[in-house]
């Protein structure tokens, strides 16, 4: 039997991701199955592999110029109060 990632661990992660898992026990089962499948990565033998990524040159980057955005973005946002964006209280 494979060692399944336990439900408690998954619930903790859900909390971290701001996902309310109250009525979603089905999700836990499916996530467990997917993670179990990911174990296949252990067989790939890639431990010593270097990570490769896209690269660019410094010259290609944006020049440092101030260019104001021409629209009133605040008006476009969903909830604001006066000049401020409204967010729920912290704790």
């Amino acid at each position: 039997m494979k060692n399944l990632v336990n439900e408690e661990e998954i619930s903790e992660v859900a909390k971290l991701m701001k996902i309310d898992l109250a009525d979603h026990n089905d999700h836990i089962k499916r996530v467990q199955k997917m993670l179990e499948y990911f174990d296949i990565l252990d067989n790939a033998g890639v431990e010593s592999e270097e990570i490769t990524v896209q690269e660019t040159d410094l010259d290609k980057l944006r020049d440092d110029k101030y260019n104001p955005y021409d629209k009133n973005l605040l008006k476009f946002l969903k909830s604001y109060q006066g000049k401020y964006v409204k967010a729920p209280k912290l704790n």
Partner: peptide, 8 residues
């Protein structure tokens, strides 16, 4: 505080 106001 009832809410948080943010200036971005």
């Amino acid at each position: 505080t009832k809410l948080t106001l943010v200036d971005y």
